[in-house]
Design a protein around this nucleic acid. Structure first.
Length: 424
RNA sequence: GUGACCGUAGCUCAGCUGGUAGAGCAUCGGAUUGUGGCUCCGAAGGUCGCGGGUUCGAGCCCCGUCGGUCACCCCA
């Protein structure tokens, strides 16, 4: 009751967990499906530290981003280094790509990761201070078909877990050339309507005018109805890239909607951006999102290498999926009726486990009845009974929990006979 | 960071106009000297989130604080 609790905005994955993301078996499920999916797409699992030099995130996300401005868990180590618990996954992976010269390998390099991210935010449904992302980063290719592959991968991952009521939105936010021509126009328009915008949007006019499209303020949205969109300013290569992405998605029969208002929160995105939203979530309805980031590698001090990736939140995936109600059953439970049977029982259980049979026994000092109850709770299909009679007779009683049938199995010739019986 | 609502056993909750805590489920045991799922009986389990105030007396009223939920902001 009182005493220690987990830190604000965190949760535990434990037996008896209520929310889907608190249930251990559902984590096993998602992690397993993620591994299998990435394996089929030939991605390599990587892992980078959960903290980095603060500057890595400041540079990649942008000084003006909300992440940098108010959401970082930052600290100083004993050597005076400025460090930050990673708020997102891309920056660390790109840092590692540069540091280890992975651009010298055959390109593209296709990577994926899974691990905790930290953001100092007030929590609500689907938003936690520590959450877990599965992410993909592909470096070294600008092929629009790669954009298609990455989106397809996320689509299949979500579908395999059973994310409900999901829509994929995509947009083209242009290359640097397109934006160089678009931003002055958009800024001029926003300045003209400055007095009608909400304060946050006014602030963005200078920082990144496209992000005003993110505003939920009704007045701002009304103004933006008339705003110029990037479509009119796209360079030919940028247009062509997007056309190929759309054609690719159609060829794979992946449903999507173009949303010209879609702008991602991080400044490093270029060209293709996308977002997967689920109606099964609350206000935080983005299950996964990503895009192309052709300037990021050089921004972090590497060569001019393009990149494309996504991040998807395991908590949100589970929240948006229909949760199966099964629990893992144990194959065999060993019941002991006298003290002297306990050591032999553990020996028996160990032999079975070595043969790949899942098996458990009582460590709580339960009565015989209590042990059978426990076996039932664990959905054990078979129970092995070791009592006085069995010990002196050199056999074990095998009970089938469904039929209630019991028979003795001799232990004299090792476990072969028993295994044969269990296999039936 | 802002706002609203909430905080009583492991879980879900009851607790009257303030008189010092109860149920169901779960757990353990028994009825059935070595046998589960049904039933019955019993036991164990609570600093009433925490701190302060008012009062003869606070789970209940007041203030603060911590935590939760949802929304804003933003995002996975």
């Amino acid at each position: 009751m009182s005493g220690f609790r987990g830190p604000k905005g965190t949760y535990d994955v434990i037996p008896g967990g209520r929310e889907p993301h608190e249930r251990p078996e559902l984590w096993e499920l998602v992690e397993g499906l993620a591994r299998a999916t990435f394996e089929r797409y030939n991605y390599t699992r990587v892992s980078t530290p959960v903290f980095e030099e603060t500057e890595v995130f400041v540079r990649s996300s942008g000084e003006a981003s909300d992440i940098v401005r108010k959401e970082m868990f930052s600290f100083r180590d004993k050597g005076g280094r400025e460090l930050t618990l990673r708020p997102e996954g891309t920056a660390g992976v790109v840092r590692a790509y540069i540091q280890h010269g992975l651009y010298k390998l055959a390109q593209p390099v296709k990577l994926w990761y899974m691990g905790p991210m930290f953001r100092h935010e007030r929590q609500q449904k689907g938003r936690y201070r520590q959450h877990t992302q599965i992410g993909a980063e592909v470096l070294g290719s600008e092929d629009p078909l790669l954009d298609v592959e990455v989106i397809a991968l996320l689509y299949e991952l979500h579908r395999s877990v059973g994310v409900r009521d999901e829509v994929f939105y995509i947009n083209n936010i242009g290359d640097f050339e397109s934006r160089r021509r678009y931003f002055p126009e958009l800024r001029a328009f926003l300045e003209k309507h400055r007095s009608e915008l909400d304060p946050d949007s006014v602030e963005r006019i200078e920082i990144n005018p496209m992000r005003t499209f993110d505003s939920k303020d009704p007045n701002t949205q009304a103004v933006l109805e008339e705003a110029p969109t990037i479509g009119e300013f796209l360079s030919e290569p940028a247009k062509e890239h997007f056309e190929q992405v759309k054609a690719g998605l159609e060829a794979l029969e992946i449903p999507y909607e173009v949303d010209e208002r879609l702008v991602r929160g991080l400044d490093y995105y270029t060209l293709t951006v996308f977002e997967a939203k689920s109606g099964a979530l609350g206000a935080q309805d983005t299950v996964g999102a990503g895009g192309r980031y052709n300037g990021l590698v050089s921004l972090l001090g590497g060569p001019d290498v393009p990149g494309m990736g996504f991040g998807t939140g395991i908590e949100r995936i589970l929240l948006a999926a229909s949760a199966p109600e099964e629990r893992a059953a144990v194959d065999v439970f060993v019941v002991t009726l006298v003290r002297e049977a306990r050591a032999p029982a553990l020996r028996l259980a160990t032999e079975l486990r070595r043969e790949g049979i899942s098996c458990d026994l009582d460590y709580a000092g339960r009565s015989a009845k209590g042990q059978f109850k426990q076996a039932d709770r664990l959905s054990a299909r078979r129970v092995l009974v070791l009592g006085e009679d069995e010990l002196s007779g050199g056999y074990v009683t095998l009970r089938d929990m469904d039929s209630g049938e019991q028979r003795g199995v001799p232990l004299s010739d090792g476990s072969a006979a028993l295994l044969r019986e269990l296999a039936r």
